[in-house]
Amino acid sequence: MRPPSNRVVELKIPSELGYEKIAREAVATVARRLNFGEEKIEDIKTAISEACTNAIRYGSGGDSRMKVVVVLSADDDKLDILIKDPGISGAPPSDVNIPDIRGMIEEKKRWGGMGLFIIRNLVDEAGFVKNEDDNEDEGNQFRMVIYRIPADEGPADEGSEPDTSDKSGSGAENKGGIT
């Protein structure tokens, strides 16, 4: 079944670790309808899990009375994912560093930053965006975009090496296309 253009799915999950799995399953269903390849779907599932986990852990302080909102927007060109949290912990990080795993293992560095690093390596665009809704002037919004490009125009879906550069347009697969 081909989904019509510009479909939006919105989820509201409790801010409690474990509930990110609902977003994970939902995005997999949407991505399959968009004909993304299985490995790219795994990438998207991992990326949304990490983003929701950050929203739960940091954006909501793990307070399960709060909610994390996940908005999945699909159109002909891309899957656009927006994750909103209450912003309890203040401003989100402005940049993403490659995790110093050697430093962590040698106990010279505190563990952290792994989730954002993984996300940046799995999707085409990722980052915190300004909240443009006047009625919701507080909280964080984290946006991820995965482009749908014909398989013969895109690079192979490898991604085994760390990469924090902007990867717009790479890595997405389209085995069928929608109109």
């Binding site: 490995e39 795994e42 990438d43 991992t46 995790p99 795993i101 050697r102 293992i105 792994m114 690093f117 993984i118 390596n121 490898e158 991604g159 085994s160 090496e161 760390p162």
Partner: peptide, 17 residues
Amino acid sequence: LSAHFQKIFRMVGLTQY
């Protein structure tokens, strides 16, 4: 590990250890 998580483990550097 699935191919996906092998990729993630390589990405974060765990496979060095």
